[in-house]
Structures are given as C-alpha cells and as structure tokens.
C-alpha cells in the first residue's frame, strides 16, 4: 500500500483540517480500494479532534499516535 505523508507542522489553524479534507476527497477511490493511506504530521492539537471525527463520519478508519513533539494522524479504508 502506498503511503502519502503530508507534513503540516507549524501551520496556521485550520490549515491541517482543510488540507486533510481536500486530500481525502482527492484520493477517496485509492483510499477505499486500500491502495493508499494518508498520513498527516501535525503539531496542532485540535486536529487530533477534528480530523479523526470527520474522517470517521465519512466512513474511513483513523489512528492517532504521538511521536516526540508532534502527532501522526493516519486515514485509511475502514475495513483495514
């Protein structure tokens, strides 16, 4: 599976969320067919609320993990 990683650290709020929405919509077929996983690297704490909540409402699976000084948010097909 291909992994598309987008580094959003230091960016203005709500840049991370808007970019996440855009990337999900642009790549929905690839994500749903399990050929692509989106990964967002962010230091915006609020994104750990908004992105998983919205992605799950859209039918995707998500995980959030803390890595050193930032967070890693993964979006993938719900069946995974």
């Amino acid at each position: 599976m291909e992994i598309k990683e987008i580094d959003m650290r230091g960016q203005i709020c709500p840049s991370t969320f808007i970019t996440a929405l855009r990337e999900i919509n642009l790549n929905k077929n690839e994500i749903k067919s399990e050929t692509l996983k989106l990964v967002f690297i962010t230091d915006n704490r609020d994104s750990t609320v908004t992105i998983p909540e919205t992605a799950e409402n859209m039918g995707y699976g998500t995980t959030v993990t803390k890595e050193e000084h930032h967070y890693r948010i993964e979006i993938f097909a719900a069946r995974q």
């Binding site: 650290r9 230091g10 960016q11 203005i12 840049s15 230091d43 704490r45 050193e68 000084h69 930032h70």
Partner: peptide, 18 residues
Amino acid sequence: LGEFRIYFKVPLPQLASG
C-alpha cells in the same frame, strides 16, 4: 508535554496572514 517546538518552515501566505 514535550510538545514545545518552533517550526520555521511555514508557507509565506500563512505568515503574511498572521
């Protein structure tokens, strides 16, 4: 929380917006 970090690599339009 170990989250203090200064990230200088920020898009210019966002700096201008700030």
